[in-house]
């Protein structure tokens, strides 16, 4: 599904290389976790995959199925089925959650040449998902992420994911700032959503999230490269000994 081939990425403004030759293949139905110390380039990787401005791709390539990702606009990547759950979800004052969700969903459907979803079907769909994630009507009426707690924001990200039904999901430190209950709720949403045709890239500092979202592969990223790949036990090892073995 996703094939990253010897990717090198610099910050646009500083000419400082952050990702220094990273290769990774993710197949349908797989859950990959990337762990690593601060500044190893994890978040840069997710930003580059989603298409955020401010980075220069020095070399290498990323294919999503047959599509060259770097030839594709941000919103086109979204319509192809790439979704990133933000580490810090963005507030958009004055724009109602429902409005935002419907606009996003129908924009994607339009790009894909599908018919737009009518108001009734849309409402039904959103309410079902919101109920699962214990998101109240009151919160759905609020402007996007405005006045929401950290946990609410993260749940909102998962709601967006469930609604937009992407095939490839990047969870960028989704566990940061969550208490155990919130993490369970978020993980429940993710696990319910996962299927053999969907893949996940879970970026995290800590192993604890991986108790709930169990990875098929764990990669340790240090200084812009993957230095070790293993199964879920690798994460447990890191939890015990830290990253010093890999530095």
């Amino acid at each position: 599904m996703l094939k990253i081939d010897n990717l090198k990425v610099s910050l646009e403004e500083e000419e400082k290389q952050i990702i220094k030759g990273l290769s990774l293949t993710i197949n349908s139905g797989e859950v990959h976790a990337i762990m690593g110390p601060n500044g190893s380039g994890k978040s840069t990787l997710s930003s580059v995959l989603a298409g955020k401005a401010g980075y220069t791709v020095d070399s290498g390539k990323v294919n999503f199925d047959e599509t060259d990702l770097f030839e594709t606009e941000v919103e086109e990547r979204a319509a192809l089925g790439i979704f990133m759950a933000f580490q810090y979800p963005i507030e958009i004052p004055g724009v109602g959650n429902m409005n935002f969700l419907r606009t996003a969903l129908n924009s994607q459907r339009k790009t894909r040449g599908q018919e737009e979803l009518n108001a009734a079907d849309f409402l039904k769909l959103v309410r079902e998902i919101a109920k699962d994630l214990e998101i109240s009507d009151e919160m759905m009426r609020r402007p996007v992420n405005v006045g929401a707690s950290g946990g609410e924001k993260k749940r909102n990200e998962i709601l967006q994911m469930c609604l937009l039904e992407p095939r490839f999901v990047i969870l960028d430190e989704t566990d940061s700032g969550l208490d155990v209950d919130a993490m369970k709720l978020v993980s429940k949403g993710v696990n319910k959503f996962s299927s053999s045709s969907r893949s996940f890239l879970v970026i995290t500092h800590y192993q604890r999230l991986l108790n709930y979202i169990v990875p098929d592969f764990v990669h340790i990223m240090v200084d812009g490269k993957i230095v070790k790949t293993g199964d879920k036990n690798l994460a447990l090892h890191v939890e015990e000994t830290g990253y010093k073995d890999f530095l």
């Binding site: 401005a53 919103e75 963005i90």
Partner: peptide, 28 residues
Amino acid sequence: DEDQLFYCMQRGIGEEDAVALIVNGFCK
């Protein structure tokens, strides 16, 4: 805000539509 635009676009909303959405929110 660049981050607001990116957020909208990552959810599939084109750039001009995203600006319209954000500005309409500002004027609400």
